[in-house]
Structure formats: structure tokens, C-alpha cells
């Protein structure tokens, strides 16, 4: 089973975020693997393990030839990676990103393309389905489980009420919900082995894009303004004077929870 996994390398969410003049997230700091992508990597590794043979190939578009996030996924067990890095890609919107990733993925044939439901920095959640459209693949979103059944996949698609069971023919693109599998620890041998796993580096010329079709000049979305998220209120402090339980009940009743 051959699986492509989209892996985004993002600025460390633990560090304060910086914006550039065009309201884009500054990506000149050290980048790490987006945690939401670790679930896709894990699911891909499990599917290949179960199939008994196959390959997990990572695809990432990142500035500055950044590979540290990819190395992490390679250390988990992915076989190789493809990195698209080109200064002319700066300012790409979700569609440009999808075009680039789709073209890179489309150079080979895969049984399955996995991605996170959304990235932890951009949160558009649109790139995966755009990739599917560009590659002419069926797509299923919000997967909490994937099983192979012959030439098809049975995908448990998370819903508010529970989950739908969807059968989809391969090749297909599936987005994986965060938290549905436990991403494995990269063990030390995996970490050392990752050092020598192949990372193919591509520019937009390698993918035959004209510079005005991608990056800031190709973007159809522009960010016109940004503002900080409203900070959460301080909350109400209730002092327990022996009647704490009654106050809790009163509060829950006011919310109509009970």
C-alpha cells in the first residue's frame, strides 16, 4: 500500500507568533511538524503495517528548505519525503498550496493521500479537498478510522452525532481528525535512521509552474486585516461557605444543563 501524507511544517505554536506586513505568519523561525499531521502519519504507518508492505511518502511545502518537521515524521517510520521549497512560493494561499502539493503528489501513483483536517496555523481546512479536486480523487473528511477492503476503503467519518461509515474506492484522499490515533514515539534508532532517509527537494521550476501562478502573485485570497482574538473573561469566583453544592446546582440550572 502506497500512501502520501501531507505534512505541514509550522512555527512552534509554543513560541509567540509574528506577522509580516501582509498579515501572513512569519515563517523565518524554526519550523516543527504540525501536531495535527502526526495523526495522519501514524494512520499511514498503521495501514502500511497492516498491509504487510508499502511505502509512506511525506509531502511538504515550506520555506528555507526546512526539513526538521519532516525528519520527525521520518523518525516515526515514514520512508521518504518530498519537500517543495522555493522563495517564489512565499505568500501562497490555500489554493496555491493545494496546486503545488497536488502536482508533486501527482508525479507518482498512490493508493491513498492523507492530510489533517486543517493546519494548526492557517486553519482554512480547505487545502486537502482542493488537492483531491486537482488530482481528481474522491475525498472523505474527518476520518476517525480507515480500513482497507479490497480496492476500497471503509472510512469512519466523524459527525456531531457519531460517525458515518463511508466506502470509497482507491485512490482517494482522506483527512484525519486530530486525536483519533496515538502517534508513536520516534525511537532513537528511528531518529538516527531518519537522518539518512531520502528527502527530495523540488522548486516550482521542477513542477513546471510559472512564477505568477503561485506564491503571492498567484494568490486569489488576500488578508485585509487581522485583530487579536478576544480574551476570555475572568469568570466568576464562588466562595464555598458550606453551600458550594447548592451554588453549583443553581449555576447549572441557569444554563439549563440540569
Amino acid at each position: 500500500m502506497k500512501i502520501a501524507v501531507c505534512v505541514k511544517q509550522i512555527p512552534d505554536p509554543a513560541a509567540p507568533a509574528k506577522m509580516d506586513a501582509n498579515y501572513n505568519l512569519a515563517r523565518d523561525t524554526k519550523l516543527i511538524m504540525d501536531e495535527s499531521d502526526s495523526y495522519g502519519v501514524e494512520m499511514a504507518l498503521q495501514l502500511v503495517d497492516k498491509a504487510g508492505a508499502g511505502e509512506v511518502v511525506l509531502f511538504s511545502m515550506a520555506p528555507g528548505e526546512e526539513v526538521s518537521g519532516l525528519r520527525n515524521a521520518l523518525a516515526m517510520g515514514a520512508h521518504r519525503a518530498v519537500l517543495i521549497s522555493d522563495p517564489r512560493l512565499a505568500g501562497s494561499d490555500a489554493l496555491s498550496t493545494a496546486k503545488v502539493l497536488a502536482k508533486a503528489i501527482g508525479r507518482e501513483s498512490f493508493d491513498l493521500v492523507l492530510a489533517a483536517t486543517e493546519s494548526s496555523d492557517g486553519y482554512t481546512g480547505t487545502t486537502p479537498v482542493q488537492i483531491a479536486e486537482l488530482l481528481d480523487l474522491p475525498s472523505v473528511t474527518f476520518a476517525k478510522g480507515i480500513e482497507v477492503k479490497g480496492e476500497s476503503l471503509i472510512v469512519a467519518r466523524q459527525t456531531e452525532a457519531g460517525f458515518d461509515e463511508i466506502e470509497v474506492p482507491t485512490p482517494a484522499l482522506v483527512t484525519v481528525t486530530a486525536g483519533v490515533v496515538e502517534p508513536r514515539y520516534p525511537n532513537f534508532k528511528g531518529i538516527m535512521a531518519a537522518k539518512s532517509k531520502p528527502v527530495e527537494k523540488l522548486s516550482i521550476d521542477d513542477l513546471a509552474f510559472s512564477p505568477d501562478s503561485v506564491g503571492a502573485s498567484g494568490a486569489r485570497e488576500t488578508i485585509t486585516s487581522i485583530r487579536p482574538a478576544e480574551s476570555r473573561g475572568a469568570g466568576t469566583v464562588v466562595v464555598d461557605e458550606g453551600d458550594g453544592f447548592a451554588k453549583i446546582i443553581e449555576y447549572l440550572e441557569s444554563l439549563k444543563v440540569i
Partner: peptide
């Protein structure tokens, strides 16, 4: 980077 990853793995 490998040693940073080793540190992170053992920390986790």
C-alpha cells in the same frame, strides 16, 4: 537535530 529529537522523545 537528531539529539534534539532524542531529548524530546525522552522528555515525552
Amino acid at each position: 537535530q537528531e539529539r534534539q529529537m532524542l531529548y524530546q522523545m525522552v522528555a515525552r
